[in-house]
């Protein structure tokens, strides 16, 4: 592990990471990688987010979709747990609520494969001080 020794180190690291995070461990085809984030705070896990995350990882691989599934913290929509965020290459991120395995399957088949929207999208109701997040919504 390289240590961050100076301010310059941190700046350099941040720039590298920003590129990397942007396509999230892109692999060989950053332009075709689907990114999925699952809200995995205590509340999400209690509503079954862990099962959904495992399902998404397994099914996306089985169905041959180039994708990266990661966990994240609470998105704030406790009433609609489990919640996931899907970013198709070249598209803005979309958040879906009440995602059980059945819904996850529908999202893979309709949205991820065909770009077709499905019911249950949660509109982003906040602004964040972080610009790329602010602009990152539909």
């Amino acid at each position: 592990m390289t240590k961050v020794k100076t301010l310059a180190d941190l700046k350099k690291l941040r720039e590298e990471l920003q590129k990397k995070i942007h396509v999230r461990e892109s692999g060989d085809h950053p332009e075709s990688t689907v990114q999925v984030k699952v809200a995995m705070a205590t509340c999400g896990i209690a509503s079954g987010a862990k099962d959904v995350m495992v399902f998404l990882m397994e099914e996306l691989e089985k169905r041959g979709i180039d994708s990266v599934v990661t966990q994240t913290g609470c998105m704030g929509y406790c009433y609609a747990e489990p919640t996931i965020e899907v970013t198709l290459p070249g598209h803005e991120p979309l958040v879906f609520g009440f995602v059980d395995k059945k819904k996850a399957d529908e999202i893979i088949e309709k949205y991820i494969k065909n770009g077709e929207l499905v019911d249950g999208i949660i509109p982003i109701t906040y602004q964040s001080i972080n610009e790329n997040q602010e602009e990152g919504q539909q």
């Binding site: 984030k37 809200a39 966990q71 994240t72 913290g73 609470c74 704030g76 964040s128 972080n130 997040q133």
Partner: peptide, 8 residues
């Protein structure tokens, strides 16, 4: 700002 956005 980072909750629900980054992998913690």
């Amino acid at each position: 700002r980072n909750c629900g956005f980054i992998d913690p």
